[in-house]
Design a protein around this nucleic acid. Structure first.
Lengths: 104, 104
DNA sequence: ACAATATTTTAGTGAGCACTATACTATTCT
DNA sequence: AGAATAGTATAGTGCTCACTAAAATATTGT
């Protein structure tokens, strides 16, 4: 684990992306479909995660399949798992989405 | 540990500040003297760390003594310790390389 | 009360970053 | 070869954030 990993993981959107590809490969498009931001934005997040060594990529036809590399996280892995277990992040994301829907 | 702790700790300067107060109290001024940024800048960092619950404060006359609260870091504690360990290792490697260059 | 010390607070600045929109590249299908 | 699909790269925008400078607050010493 290097400093760039800690920085990469501190971003909430990237935390969610990482969870999506935690135990299965997913195409960039599938990942992007989970958010209401642009495809390009998600692609950039994937680039940051990949530069930090936290995800691997593999071409499959015209798709690119991403997968987390939990072993590259080192002690950060426990941090993320703890965060997800507590579910606080999920609730926060939902609350923010609701807030945007209501009066954003 | 909450999401704010992860964000607070992802900033390099705050990592260093946290290490300075890791196992001893230090006055804000002493901490600030370790950096060549303004006193005010360090004070702001201390505020972020305090808001995240990662440091405690205590008045002593006109000084404010800060101390880390490692127990509040949860799994993030291992991340920081790992980062500092590897940081020292890097310095050691550099020093050895320099030594070889000079008279190896 | 006044000056000095220790620190926070606030207003403003510049850089970085998450995002959008658009252009570009690469692959598959007909 | 041409159209469609899947994704990256790039230029531009607004917001966040680390920092500076200056003002405000609090405590101690004379």
């Amino acid at each position: 684990m290097h400093a760039s990993a800690l920085r990469a993981v501190s971003e909430p959107r990237r935390q969610t992306i990482l969870r999506l590809v935690w135990d299965q490969e997913r195409a960039a498009g599938d990942i992007a479909a989970s958010f209401d931001v642009t495809f390009g934005a998600v692609s950039q997040h994937l680039r940051v995660l990949h530069d930090a060594g936290l995800v691997s990529v593999r071409r499959d036809g015209r798709r690119r399949l991403y997968r987390a590399r939990p072993e590259a996280l080192g002690p950060l892995r426990a941090v993320l798992e703890d965060l997800w277990r507590s579910g606080l992040q999920e609730l926060k994301t939902l609350a923010e989405a609701e807030e945007r829907r209501a009066h954003g």
